[in-house]
Design a protein around this nucleic acid. Structure first.
Lengths: 170, 170
DNA sequence: TATTGTTATACTCTATAACTATA
DNA sequence: TATAGTTATAGAGTATAACAATA
């Protein structure tokens, strides 16, 4: 934005006065200033990356959200639902059914805390640890590999740094 | 605000073996490998950017999606619904109610095409053009300005280039 | 009184099938 | 028959209020 770049597209061909006829039919639609909108590019890229993640991890049937929960449980065993949900930006009510799904697949368990009997301590099961380990391998060998192919490793790091800066400072 | 910042995370303190007691209580939760997952950072950044967009354009009550439709109609007058919806990755059935909203606010109109009476030719109204112009000013002066502050203009351009590469080649 | 997990609920997005009117 | 716009519908994701058990 700032300087409306308008790359290659000029064409004096603005649609003439009135006439409810179609626009220039053979032409491709011009994105115009949309291609300068960061939010737009961010959303499109995010959808692509999530789609690829789901495709790569399809054999294990894990969504990005489920994978992130398992990762967090592995690194932070013994935390309660509120803590894990908050960290991921998931609201506590919505985290309940998500955990139900993971627990019914025996990937994690809820246990009443001995310290505070209101809270559920969360732990990965052996199966959960095993599935997570396999998921990580798929993510590295397929998903991240694809990203490094497209971006190059150094760009991937730079991209990550900028995204984290936005998430933190914005 | 009040977001668990997760400042500096190191600590060799992994949680010991079993014991259904709570984890290290005073500690912040460790993101671990999650902070290396591009999809995760992408999603968090996208949510932040959209929130800021909505906040900046709040006086005009336009969502990012609505803004992108108006931008496209301005640059591509006389296109039909399928063409605009496809360009934005919106499914035609879902585009109907979206257009209903914009048309009921008199920001755009549907007109039966004279060439093909099945299709609706889409055009911005004068009011639509006016609102869009005001929205662009808010986006540039508030939203993009904030982004340039956080990232720096040259980083913003680099970020955009990488995101577009992902959206295209991934 | 406050908090944890939970239920219920609602609203937005997204996705698919099928209808209608045109072609 | 095929396509454009539409309807209906179903599923995710996200948001808030309120309740029971516990602190």
């Amino acid at each position: 934005m700032t300087v409306s770049k308008t790359p290659a597209l000029d064409l004096t061909k603005t649609v003439r006065g009135s006439a409810p006829a179609d626009a220039g039919e053979g032409d491709a639609i011009k994105l115009g200033e949309l291609s300068e909108l960061l939010g737009y590019s961010l959303k499109r890229a995010q959808l692509k990356v999530f789609d690829d993640f789901i495709r790569c991890v399809a054999p294990l049937q894990l969504t990005p959200a489920q994978f992130s929960v398992l990762l967090l449980l592995e690194r932070n065993p013994g935390r309660n639902q509120t803590e894990i949900a908050n960290t991921l930006g998931i609201l506590r009510p919505n985290f309940v059914s998500m955990l139900d799904g993971l627990e019914s697949r025996e990937l994690c368990v809820r246990m009443r805390s001995t310290n505070d009997r209101r809270s559920h301590v969360l732990m990965l099961t052996d199966k959960g640890r095993s599935i997570l380990a396999r998921a990580k391998k798929l993510v590295v060998s397929k998903h991240e590999a694809r990203l490094n192919e497209v971006l190059g490793p150094e760009n991937r790091v730079a991209l990550l740094a900028m995204l984290d800066k936005i998430a933190r400072d914005f």
